[in-house]
Amino acid sequence: MPYYTILFYIFAIAIIASAVIVVTAKNIIYSAVSLFITLFFIAGLYVLLNADFIAITQIMVYIGGILVLLIFGIMLTSKITEVELTTSNLSAVPAIIFTVGITTIIIFVILTTKWNTKPPAVMTETISQIGKLMLTTYLLPFEIASIVLLVALIGSAMYSRKIK
């Protein structure tokens, strides 16, 4: 077995295991740390797909930005870390019906889709192509996304202010 395949399975198992911990952990800090592991290994999957730019952006944005902010918030509010989270199922029967339904749909889709399995093109430099596309073909979506982010930033700053 080529070691890329072995690496893929290691990453996949780590992602699933840590994602299960995110959902089931009783302590919110454990959930946050498992989320860190999940996101990190997802970046690993991107690397295996030759998507180096997306992999590094994943680490920068999700781990360096969002997750640090999340944990920062949790740690500053010590009351949250003491609370035991309820992770038991409140309504088991409908949940089982829904998950079984969704799982069958997903498996059905996976089995019936004609997957495009030609070998990937060898990419020498992704970043210059991404940069060119972002500032030519996809300029409008790019600008709209930045404006949405700016609005969200201003909005959150306004709400967190004390109104006199």
Partner: peptide, 8 residues
């Protein structure tokens, strides 16, 4: 990006 890992 890696610098921000150490922050964790």
């Amino acid at each position: 990006a890696i610098t921000s890992l150490g922050v964790m």
